[in-house]
Simulated assay, not measured.
Amino acid sequence: MRYIIGSDKYHVVGNWNGIWKAQAPHKARHLLWCLCRGCLPTRSRLLQRRVECTLNCPVCDDEIEDELHIFFRCAVARDSWSAAGMSSVLHNATYQQTNAMNRIFAVCSNESSDTVGRVTMLLWCIWHNRNDNVQMPRQIGRHAFDAWNDLYTVHKLQSNIVSGTTDGDLLRWDKPALDWVKCNVDVAFVSGSGRTSVGLCFRDNSGHFMTGMTQWQQTVISSVEGEA
């Protein structure tokens, strides 16, 4: 294994540590690794592997789909970068290399792990949508933005716990009083769908799950109204 890893035949020079240190889910970092290793099944790559398929981008159908196009040059991808608030990175003169791998390595070398994480999450969302092709660019960008912020919040909470945060500083679920049942509610809004999702969970005074429910409502209301 050491011989294979060290062999020039298999080694690709680049900032691989920058990819693995990105503040992003592992699935997104793995996508970045596949992109830089030339493993993503874009249509141009599939054709190289003798898979019969059309070459045009499945999202815009305007140009040949390779890594550079699907993530950086496709109109949907560019609008998604804008919706995620990452246009300054996309158009930065430092990151205009002629292939996707070198662009990624340049971003990893010059940006913070947080920014690299945002970019990584956005690329994962673009690729995910490329396979499903169901979302508008603003939805892709917003999903990437929200997913990264959720991840950041969890990491921040975990780091606070490790650094010595006391139990009194954390919000914890409390059991209801004897002979009482507690119902916890959460509401989510699906942008652009005109629908609100509601989830309910009932527990007894021992904290044991009793029953639950999920439901769609055909309207978009405020979080206060929804949870009420």
Rank of each mutant, 00 (worst) to 15 (best):
S112R: 08
H128P: 01
C60K: 10
K9R: 13
V59K: 10
L32C: 12
P58S: 08
D114L: 06
W148S: 02
C36Y: 04
A147I: 03
V107C: 01
R50F: 12
Q23K: 13
N129A: 06
C108H: 00
W124M: 01
R49M: 13
Y10S: 11
K27L: 03
R45V: 05
A77T: 09
L90Y: 05
W81R: 07
V134H: 04
C60F: 07
P137Y: 04
A83I: 05
W124P: 01
Q23S: 11
E52W: 11
P41R: 10
V134E: 12
S87C: 08
R43W: 05
L47D: 06
N131L: 12
R73D: 13
H91D: 14
H91R: 08
G14A: 08
H143Q: 14
T42M: 07
S80W: 06
L32W: 01
C57A: 03
I4T: 15
N133L: 03
A84I: 07
V12H: 12
Y3P: 05
Q96D: 13
F72S: 04
A77Q: 08
N15D: 15
G117C: 02
Q48L: 13
L55H: 07
M101G: 06
Q135W: 08
H69S: 05
F145G: 02
S87I: 08
N17K: 09
Y3A: 15
S44Y: 04
C74F: 06
V76W: 03
C57N: 06
G6I: 03
R29I: 03
I19Q: 01
H69C: 05
D79P: 01
S87Q: 14
S112V: 01
A147N: 13
R49Y: 10
S87G: 06
V119Y: 01
F105Y: 05
G117W: 00
S7P: 10
R45C: 09
C36D: 08
L46H: 09
W16S: 02
K9T: 15
H30V: 11
R43M: 09
I64S: 11
Y10E: 10
L68C: 07
H128F: 09
V13T: 13
A147E: 15
V76T: 15
N149V: 09
M101Y: 03
Q139N: 11
M121W: 00
M101T: 08
I140A: 04
A75H: 14
G18T: 05
L55D: 12
L40V: 15
K21L: 04
E111V: 00
Y95T: 05
A100Y: 00
W16R: 04
D66E: 08
K9Q: 13
C39V: 13
R2Y: 13
G85H: 11
N129C: 05
I126P: 01
R103Q: 02
T54N: 14
N149F: 12
L55W: 07
G117R: 00
V59F: 06
N15A: 11
E65N: 08
I5A: 13
A22F: 01
P41S: 10
T54H: 14
G85K: 11
E52N: 14
H26V: 06
L40F: 03
F145I: 02
G117A: 02
R29F: 00
P58E: 09
G85N: 11
A75C: 13
A83C: 10
H26R: 14
G6F: 11
I104E: 02
W124D: 00
N133Y: 04
V89P: 02
R130E: 07
N15Q: 09
A106E: 08
M136N: 09
W20M: 02
F72Y: 12
